[in-house]
Design a protein around this nucleic acid. Sequence first.
DNA 1: GAGTGGTCTAGACCACAAA
DNA 2: TTGTGGTCTAGACCACTCC
Lengths: 232, 232
Amino acid sequence: MSKTTLEQRIRSDIEARIRSGALRPGDRIPFEHELVAAYGCARATVSKAVEALAKAGLVERRRKAGTFVAHPHVQSAVLAVPDLEKLIAARGEAYRWTLIEQCRASASDLETGDIPSPALRIDGVHHADGVPLALEMRLISLSAVPLAASQPFGERSPGAWLLEQVPWTEARHEIGAANPTPEEAAALDMPTSGACLEVRRWTWQSGAPVTYVRQLFPGGRYHLMAEFTPGA
Amino acid sequence: MSKTTLEQRIRSDIEARIRSGALRPGDRIPFEHELVAAYGCARATVSKAVEALAKAGLVERRRKAGTFVAHPHVQSAVLAVPDLEKLIAARGEAYRWTLIEQCRASASDLETGDIPSPALRIDGVHHADGVPLALEMRLISLSAVPLAASQPFGERSPGAWLLEQVPWTEARHEIGAANPTPEEAAALDMPTSGACLEVRRWTWQSGAPVTYVRQLFPGGRYHLMAEFTPGA
DNA sequence: GAGTGGTCTAGACCACAAA
DNA sequence: TTGTGGTCTAGACCACTCC
């Protein structure tokens, strides 16, 4: 017996033919009315199945012409950017946040973060089992989050607090590698010659800047993972 | 006059209420039959709209209870991993691939790449306007891609060739930072103390390993970008 | 012009989880 | 038990685009 829906079956049938190479990029897949005949179902059902493949980028639909296997262009992948506190806890390690500095953001800070004045600047370190995992430099727009001004970030990291205050934001990430400055290297307990993973994130809510954060991870202690399974 | 569909309107109405904070995580959004009444349309239309929000992760649907605004948990983002040749060309720079070595993969190679024997190993450098942008170490499974054995990779990078041979694969990425070995630093024309972005990618087709690649980017010359806009 | 996909309707039955 | 969402049907009209 099967617990899968008919729509899923149609979809995975076609997907398997693409993944196996039986259908190659540029090939036309059966018309909707042909699939309707083949599976003996309503057109809405096959339409939903094929539409899902199209949204996943596996096929391309063209009016009057039909539906074709797409040419894979850029590899895209879903990147998980977890909250560090939860990530460390999930790994079974002890989490600790230490505040370095909490002050008004300077003009040059605001420029790099593209955050309007007034804004708060918070520097600190995330530790896993006592080892520095990430150095964080964050700006928070006080016009978007006024409560941040009176919030003490000595005990709790601003990321988790912000998530509660300002849910469902849009964000942009830039991921690169950089060497730490002497001060950063000291905070991370690493040499300045060591490589760091640098993640910078700009966050908006309804188009208004909320926060900017730059996180520096010592090379060997952390890596990001991304899965790419279109159609999953 | 509007060119948007009714489904899109319903969807963006709800999304705007979530994004603006009018509906907060845990709040229930209207039942389908309420939306049907509010918009005066068929249930299938509102169902499609709300289902799209659910797929985007903005809401969570529970039978008998209703549909609720989801709690943002892990930040996820869509990461673009472009073909380097096309990326460099798109930036208006001259692309060049230089082969370092092409040989049979050793046992230790196969272990790190999780590729079955026999396999090919190809090392080379991607240049943009004559400057080394990335060092690449790649393994190709010869059982998955037999043609690779007789393919000369002196002129053309194996990535673009593979994409034509074996389209629509699944992949996993690991992104980190590392220091180059002296040999790698020389190939990239950089000091060993410089930070590198390290991207490792495992690729399968229909569950069978196809290729493994490790790319090393000098820190300042490249960065990855990821957008996070659920509901777009 | 002809035929595709895009959207929508007005029903229906079912599985499941909350009350 | 009850009501929600999950799935599906059998139509319909339309817009677009390839021939």
